[in-house]
């Protein structure tokens, strides 16, 4: 009986540690959202003028982009 209880405690303890570790990992993943959004935004706003190789438009796009932050 007491052995069973001890096992139960040990299980609960290890599960709790596992949950804490998972929470940390989830938080790490959640923090990528802003980064990802920032990257996509930069690429979207600046890539098109760059691929068009239009110097004036590239300069204009960079200037406008900085202003919009």
């Amino acid at each position: 009986m007491s052995q069973n209880r001890w096992n139960l405690y040990a299980t609960v303890r290890s599960q709790r540690l596992r949950i804490e570790a998972l929470e940390t990992e989830v938080a790490e993943l959640q923090r990528h959202y802003v980064r990802m959004a920032e990257l996509v935004d930069v690429v979207q706003e600046l890539l098109i003028p760059v691929t068009q190789r239009d110097e004036a438009r590239i300069a204009e796009a960079i200037e406008a982009f900085d202003k919009s932050l």
Partner: peptide
């Protein structure tokens, strides 16, 4: 702390 700001201004200055 804003990646967009660093990349945008970095690109502007680097040119």
């Amino acid at each position: 702390t804003q990646l967009r700001s660093v990349l945008g201004e970095g690109a502007r200055v680097a040119r």
